[in-house]
Write a protein that binds this DNA or RNA. Structure first.
Lengths: 182, 182
DNA sequence: CACATATAGTTTAGATTCTAAACTATATGT
DNA sequence: ACATATAGTTTAGAATCTAAACTATATGTG
């Protein structure tokens, strides 16, 4: 027997995808491309790679690779080989892509960001889910167990030791882990 | 600027789809087919049609039609022309399909149905969303403005006038509308 | 009744995406 | 030096998606 929460989640998912499809149509690109651009607009500087995208969107590397080729051809992204690890190619949004992402964000669920309780509920749902499936990764630094608050009001990543600005602490990171419960 | 709730929703959506994809793999069918079977397992007797599926999943009728053809060939669904309106074909899950749906439900988010607050938050999110986009439809009768509670503990649909059992009042209906806010 | 229009669903063709597997290249560990 | 792991690309074939044309039934109007 399917329970209530599955039904709501199912419906939310379908609705969200419908909206993404519609937004993609308006921009003249594919739904997956919207998701890729969105991810790149909210991920941090450790997480802007094809591999991370593949994990985040749950699709094969090959599929992502093809989408990226198209997005580059159409002037939405730029690629840079990482000097520290030459296997890695970092991805960057062009101004054209940033404008698209902005338009899309405005078209999705206007003014829904205000719903504080809903936001908290979604977060805790996600947390429980990821913990249960030991499917770690992908969350904002501000909710990560590696994140430290410094006395000066700034933040620091306990994994890399690097300082994080107020903007960066809200970005999505591959290495994100929730605080463990018990 | 993308806000928090968009990020959580985005992530929940991606995770959910990953799980569906995985479940579909285990069953040897396509992800869309899982969604179709799930919908048919929770919709009521007015809503088990190709048209409703097309609206619910936000895909073209052609696409749905093709999926249904495959599902019928593989013994997951049966079709019956509706005697009252011969344009309509009603869809029914076979025992094989019901078994699949059961396995899939168990593999998704074990024990997550208990989270009462999360369930409420999702519901109110959905409600706000559907109202804002005047995108009505698809919800459980128990939250519909047409649903009436009878003195004997049973329910009645104000649109069709038909009585609803305790099971039916939890099913998904095409004609569902939330109570309007003001 | 005749006609126009709306709705449910199917079919077709072409573009796109997805997956799986083989492949290149760089890093890491012993 | 060697085995193994990781990042990413390429390829081929299967599946999906969309859009548009099409059939069939219902409904509304003069």
């Amino acid at each position: 027997m399917i329970n209530d929460i599955d039904i709501w989640l199912e419906r939310l998912t379908s609705l969200y995808r419908s909206q993404i499809r519609h937004a993609a149509n308006n921009e003249g690109i594919q739904p997956v491309h919207v998701e890729i651009l969105q991810y790149l607009s909210i991920c941090n500087r450790y997480s802007n790679t094809a591999q991370a995208l593949s994990e985040y969107l749950g699709q094969t590397k090959g599929s992502i690779s093809q989408s990226l080729k198209l997005l580059e051809k159409d002037g939405y992204i730029e690629r840079n080989q990482c000097p520290d690890d030459k296997r890695v190619t970092r991805l960057y949004l062009t101004p054209k892509a940033k404008a698209s992402v902005k338009r899309i964000a405005n078209s999705l669920m206007p003014n829904l960001g205000e719903a504080k309780e809903a936001s908290d509920a979604l977060k805790s749902l996600l947390m429980e889910w990821q913990l249960k499936n030991s499917h770690q990764g992908f969350g904002q630094c501000q909710s990560c167990r590696f994140n430290r608050s410094l006395p000066n009001g700034k933040f620091q990543c306990g994994l890399t030791g690097e300082p994080l600005t107020k903007v960066e602490v809200k970005q999505i990171c591959r290495e994100h882990e929730f605080h463990s419960q018990s």
